[in-house]
Amino acid sequence: MKRLGGPSRVGRALTSADLARSTIVIVVVLVVQNTLLDTVRVGGAHPDAMLLLPVAAGYAAGPDRGAVFGFFSGLVADLFLPTPFGLSALVGCLLGYATGLATRGLVRSSWWLPPVVAVIATAAGMGAYAILGGVLGDPGMLKTYLAPALVVATPAAALLAVPVLRFVAWAVPEPGAGHGSPSGRGSR
């Protein structure tokens, strides 16, 4: 996938411009989630673009930046959710890290790779969310809400994967060597 930020941003430390871009990405996706995606409702569940943010960050920029991006995007999402505060941040950082680790070294030339990664990571993220919710004393998250959430959120993740990945890749530069780039550069 072509990086929108340009090759000069590859392999360098984060700058204040990157942080500003990351903030824009999180706010824009939050607005899209709360105004558009929340209205697409099947069986009480809806697509979850906020959960795709750490996945896209891990995929585009590796485990470290995926984890950090996932933590902060999750923290912002938690401000608007009735579930325990910090749960999305925990799932976000784990998901960003795991996606970054699992996909580094992959050759990114296949068009189907981002949707497949998004579906698997969303399913894993939803499962982790429900399990951690159960651990925190809310077993119904696992028993009642997980199945409809998976049925709706995973196909939606496949559709949203490419635009969200492009948007996140614009904001979070890849760290360079040691990580497979979204465009196929730097893959080992």
């Binding site: 984890a67 950090v68 505060f85 910090g86 941040a89 950082c93």
Partner: peptide, 16 residues
């Protein structure tokens, strides 16, 4: 990095 973030998340959840 991931260790610090997980600890921070768990601390926030616990405080809440």
């Amino acid at each position: 990095t991931i260790g610090l973030l997980v600890v921070a998340s768990i601390a926030i959840i616990t405080l809440d």
